[in-house]
């Protein structure tokens, strides 16, 4: 991943910053420049909660090369209380015991390494809530 893209996406990837349209109140994660609902271009920033419920998931057994050390792993979509949804990897779990509706907590993790020399990418992964 290019350093410029990592840098651009830091607010949403590092701090879970989402956007709410000032005109119609529609919420977005990741944030957008133009509201798909009303065409508004002004947004307020708000921070997503660090917990959600697992809406759906799938298990990846043949991953792209940069994720091979993690296989097999689950990718899931979680839903926050305000209705926003987010996709990410589910870590620290027994993939055979995952259940739709299960509570998930977000945890800061390394999501990609560009071989041994590139920049490191960080963001949030989902962890089954246990405390």
């Amino acid at each position: 991943m290019f350093p410029s893209r990592i840098w651009r996406e830091m607010p949403q990837r590092y701090r879970l910053e989402a956007a709410v349209c000032k005109k119609c109140g529609k919420r977005y994660y990741p944030p957008r420049l133009v509201c798909a609902e009303c065409g508004g271009r002004q947004f307020d920033t708000y921070v997503l909660p660090e917990e959600g419920k697992l809406l759906t998931f799938t298990v990846i057994r043949t991953p792209a090369s940069q994720f091979s050390d993690l296989a097999p792993y689950a990718m899931g979509i979680i839903k926050f209380d305000d209705g926003l949804q987010m996709m990410g990897q589910i870590a620290d779990c027994d993939i055979d015991k995952l259940k739709i509706g299960q509570k998930m907590r977000l945890e800061f993790r390394k999501i990609q390494t560009d071989d041994t020399h590139g920049v490191l990418s960080y963001a949030y992964k989902f962890i089954p809530k246990w405390y």
Binding site: D69, L70, Q89, E107, F108, R109, K110, Y122, K125
Partner: peptide, 16 residues
């Protein structure tokens, strides 16, 4: 630590 855990990720979670 799993491959997605390093000193930075542990530091961020401890700091939070």
């Amino acid at each position: 630590p799993t491959p997605d855990v390093d000193t930075i990720t542990l530091s961020v979670e401890a700091t939070k």
